[in-house]
């Protein structure tokens, strides 16, 4: 739970995004990893079970503790309902469940990371938020083709920090409307 200190009891805005972005000076142009045009990137990392994931810090709008949501009927299992974020209705997705690892039994120690995906705002339910990571683009590795896992297409890269491996989320794919729609369709089929 050491990383939970990152999450204040209530809401916690992500400070000084612009300031941190200033690290994004280009270092070299030879880089051919998934993300180009910037030498370094910053990610907020969080855990789901043993796995650590990261999202681009620029897309993170807010981090807050789990609160009860309102369920949306006939939506896929990983769609955990909606909550009121200062007057805006925001859908919450269970990342664990999204990756087919079962529904998270959410407690108030769990964390919702509110991120912007295209022009929408969504929340992802994770176990803990652990770190802010500054990574050189050259340290981001492609996701190896793993035949069994569907995860691969939802990841934009992998980073190894010391002995940890962080999987960087491709949130555009992960929470793309079409993917969501497919998810619903799948969910419906599963029901019957």
């Amino acid at each position: 739970m050491e990383s939970n200190s990152l999450v204040a009891q209530e809401n916690m805005g992500v400070p000084a995004q612009d300031g941190q972005n200033s690290h994004n000076q280009s270092m070299d142009g030879t880089n051919t990893t998934a993300v180009e045009n910037a030498g370094q990137q910053q990610f907020i990392t969080f855990t789901v079970g043993d796995q650590e994931y990261g999202v681009d810090i620029m897309s993170v709008r807010e981090i807050k503790g789990w609160v009860e949501t309102t369920l949306l009927p006939n939506t896929p299992e990983y769609m955990r309902g909606v909550l009121n974020l200062r007057g805006v209705i925001v859908p919450i997705f269970d990342l664990r469940c999204r990756f087919g690892l079962g529904k998270t039994d959410a407690t108030n120690l769990h964390v919702i990371v509110i991120i912007a995906v295209k022009n929408r705002m969504v929340g992802i339910l994770v176990d803990t938020v652990s770190d802010i990571l500054t990574v050189s683009n050259s340290d981001i590795r492609d996701v190896p083709k793993m035949e069994t896992l569907i995860e691969e297409e939802y990841l934009s890269g992998l980073v190894t920090i010391e002995d940890r491996m962080v999987a960087l989320l491709n949130q555009e794919r992960l929470f793309d409307t079409k993917v969501i729609e497919n998810g619903i369709a799948i969910g419906k089929i599963d029901e019957t």
Binding site: T70, L72, T75, L83, N84, V122, I184
Partner: peptide, 22 residues
């Protein structure tokens, strides 16, 4: 605004306790 249409639901609102109601 942030999600897709849901059958049987026209919109949402926020109740006095801050919870979303459909």
């Amino acid at each position: 605004e942030n999600y897709d249409p849901v059958d049987g639901i026209s919109a949402a609102t926020i109740l006095g306790n801050g919870m979303v109601a459909l």
